[in-house]
Simulated scan of single mutants.
Amino acid sequence: MFEVTVQAGFSSGHYLRNYNGKCENPHGHNYRVLVTLVGAELDETGLLLDFKLLKHVLRPTVDYLDHQMINDLEPFITLNPSAENLAKYFFDNTATQLDEMTSGRVRVKDCTVFETDTSFARYFEQL
């Protein structure tokens, strides 16, 4: 199997609902997102997926969240904007686009969302 990973970043605010502590108040993060793809076959160029193309796939999701109050955006109006839920959001958005682009040759292995340099959440599904 082959893997490739790209990193993206964005700055946003959020607050956690049904949480008792500082994070129930509006606050911000400089988020860092890592998306790892996996596949058994390379393309005719010898790539699993061009890094530039994967960054292009991530750009609409990053732009949607960047410099926003995440709680004011779908699906986070009702879904708590935790790092865990953001990781799944990136996973789902990336997986949908990749399936269309590569006919299933390339899949999302996992998505990791860092809220700080030392705190992150990861979402993955069994392959």
Rank of each mutant, 00 (worst) to 15 (best):
C111D: 04
P81N: 09
R107T: 13
A40C: 06
S103Y: 08
L79W: 03
E100G: 05
K55G: 00
A40D: 14
R107A: 15
D50A: 13
V33S: 00
E44K: 15
I77D: 04
F10H: 04
D50T: 11
D50N: 15
V35W: 03
T116S: 11
R107F: 02
Q7C: 12
A83Y: 08
E3H: 08
N18H: 12
C111K: 05
G39W: 06
K88S: 13
N18Y: 01
R59A: 10
R17C: 08
I77F: 02
R59V: 02
L49P: 01
D110W: 05
A8D: 08
A95C: 03
R105A: 10
F76C: 09
G39F: 00
Y123R: 04
T112L: 13
D43N: 15
E125D: 10
L79E: 15
L16S: 05
V38S: 12
N85A: 07
D72K: 14
T45Y: 14
F124C: 06
L98Y: 02
P81T: 04
E74C: 05
Y89G: 00
F124A: 11
N71F: 07
G21L: 00
L54K: 02
D117W: 01
A40K: 13
N18L: 15
P75T: 12
V38T: 14
H56V: 10
S119M: 11
D50W: 09
L42Y: 10
N18T: 10
L127H: 04
L49Q: 02
S11Q: 08
V6R: 08
N85Y: 02
R122M: 09
D117F: 02
H14I: 02
G104C: 13
D117P: 05
D66W: 06
A83M: 11
L58A: 02
G13Q: 13
T96F: 11
L65R: 03
D92Q: 14
Y123T: 06
A95Q: 11
N71W: 07
F114K: 04
V113E: 04
E41P: 01
V62G: 03
E100Q: 13
L58V: 07
G21D: 04
L48K: 08
H29V: 06
M69A: 08
M1S: 11
F90W: 10
P60K: 00
K109C: 11
D50C: 07
T94R: 03
Q97E: 15
C23L: 06
D110Q: 15
L65E: 01
R122C: 14
L54F: 07
T94C: 15
F51V: 08
H56R: 09
T116F: 06
K22M: 10
R17L: 12
I77M: 11
G46P: 01
S12H: 04
H27A: 14
Q68V: 01
V57I: 12
G46N: 02
L127S: 12
F124D: 06
Y123L: 02
T96K: 15
G21A: 00
Y19W: 10
L65N: 01
I77K: 15
G21I: 03
D66A: 03
F91G: 05
G21E: 01
T36K: 09
